[in-house]
């Protein structure tokens, strides 16, 4: 049993963690009644996606994707006679980092927009609970 679990989960442990995080976020987005809690769920969901992308760029034993001041890959000196493909294993993949770097900041900005919408809803309706909002809206439009 333990061997089976290690075979299944062992090398994909990171993905299992992200999927659990993603499930938490999705559940909060669907099931919570409070709009602010829904937004927290969305943020947790987003964190799971960001972690997934960053972990895709990981290479075992590699360092950060910053070269030394002569443009050499830091660990290149250890195996100088290898080709560029093997030397590239010495630094992490920079592309997922770039994509997530912008995604994090844009995520903060869009979360700000969402929170300001919630605040405008609170200003106009006096509540951020979804069921109360639906009742208010129905009473405003009795014909449907």
């Amino acid at each position: 049993m333990a061997e089976f679990l290690w075979k299944t989960i062992g090398h994909h442990f990171n993905f299992w963690v992200y999927i659990v995080l993603l499930m938490l976020g999705l559940w909060a987005t669907i099931a919570k009644n409070n709009l602010v809690k829904k937004l927290m769920g969305l943020s947790i969901f987003q964190s799971a996606i960001i972690l997934l992308y960053v972990s895709i760029g990981t290479k075992e034993g590699a360092t950060i994707p910053i070269l030394d001041h002569h443009g050499h890959i830091p660990s290149e000196s250890h195996h100088a006679d290898v080709g560029p493909e093997i030397a590239a294993h010495g630094v992490a993949n920079p592309l997922p980092h770039v994509l997530m770097l912008t995604a994090i900041v844009v995520g903060v900005a869009t979360l700000g927009v969402a929170l300001s919408l919630v605040q405008a809803i609170y200003r106009d309706f006096g509540t951020v609970e979804e069921d109360e909002l639906l009742r208010e809206i129905k009473s405003l439009h009795p014909d449907g």
């Binding site: 895709i56 990981t58 290479k59």
Partner: peptide
């Protein structure tokens, strides 16, 4: 999916 930290995964190589 490829293993965690695999330098030869499609995304990396």
């Amino acid at each position: 999916f490829p293993d965690f930290g695999d330098p030869t995964s499609p995304a990396n190589a």
